[in-house]
Design a protein around this nucleic acid. Structure first.
Lengths: 192, 192
DNA sequence: GTGGTTACGTGACCTACATCACATTTGAGG
DNA sequence: CCTCAAATGTGATGTAGGTCACGTAACCAC
């Protein structure tokens, strides 16, 4: 399936756009192809786009002063990624986005999104819906963080994102769970 | 200032509504008054409203099987609160919302919000903006959780929400930070 | 007032997870 | 098919923060 079709059916699940509306909407996206390991956003960049994943897998992550990595989000096909804090507030990136596998994405600038939201009411509805989802997911993850130990969170992750689990190395899953890779390893290889 | 004025100036910071539009918008809200300690949403309730705080302070929180409390959010005047997961997905509440102090709120049902978002484009814009803010804040908190120790997070909280810090007892702040009240106490009373 | 609930302080001890160190396996690229 | 880097396993040891226990102080409600 083409990038355009993938985006179209993704949007259609939430709002109805006429073909003309969708074509107009789509005309604001720019295709991008990236290789495994390649950076899409780097800390201190100016961020002006968000990225819709057509194929492959991205991660968005923060690197702290000790060079420890924390993964905010994985992004599989039909998911969106960016440094939303930087994007919305026109500040420099504090997080990185890069490719876990080769990936194709569709880029949409912040300005174009805002323009489209103004011009097409249903587009604004779509983006509101999407953020609502993201907000609820983030709150759930926060609660799980406070409430559950690593083992539970690991299994929860496995159930929630089996398709990610199958692609992503365990050290990255550890970085998503906020735990050391050693501890994660010991979880499913109980010593002795 | 009246509830209506407070809501009006809160909205006006983000979008412009005509007076007629705002009056119509406002006509969908129902006033509510609650006493300190009173529950607004209880786990297993059906949730059909979200709440705009006019005065006082609310908390939304989860109680786990060991009866330990985790605070998702405080809500001061002009902030919004609900069990958004339950509200958006029409499921039963898994979190509670109650009053830390006497409080006045404006209630808006989910159906009315959706109706208003459809009818008035700018209203949809406002709610998209609001959730964007919430999403970014939740992601920041998540990162801080993974990256920083309790002491740092406590000070961060203090800087971010000084007005909450002055109202709310420390055991609730501990529940927000996801830490035991004993540990929090030892932080600023370093034992000799 | 007084009694009782809620907030807060602090010591002793426990535990989940981090860190460091090193060995082993895997897999992608030449 | 080889090589080298990345991913993974595992032991020893350290530590932030939890839990339990108990005591004091502050604040209602009556």
């Amino acid at each position: 399936m083409e990038a355009k079709e993938i985006l179209k059916s993704h949007i259609a699940k939430i709002v109805s756009l006429t073909d003309e509306q969708f074509d107009y909407f789509f005309s604001h996206f720019k295709k991008g192809s990236f290789k495994k390991g390649q950076a899409i956003i780097s800390a201190n960049d100016l961020v002006d786009c968000e990225y819709f994943v057509v194929s492959g897998c991205l991660k968005s992550f923060y690197i702290n002063d000790d060079l420890k990595m924390f993964i905010l989000q994985f992004a599989m096909p039909t998911w969106w990624a960016s440094d939303y804090n930087a994007l919305y507030n026109h500040t420099k990136a504090t997080i990185d986005v890069d490719c876990i596998t080769d990936a194709e994405v569709l880029c949409l600038t912040n300005d174009d999104r805002e323009k489209l939201c103004k011009e097409i009411h249903n587009v604004e509805h779509f983006f509101r819906w999407r953020t609502n989802k993201g907000f609820v997911a983030a709150q759930k993850r926060l609660l799980s963080f406070m409430n559950n130990n690593v083992k539970y969170r690991y299994e929860e992750f496995l159930n929630l994102y089996p398709e990610v689990y199958n692609i992503v190395p365990k050290n990255l899953i550890a970085a998503y769970l906020g735990v050391s890779r050693e501890t994660l390893s010991r979880l499913y290889h109980p010593e002795k």
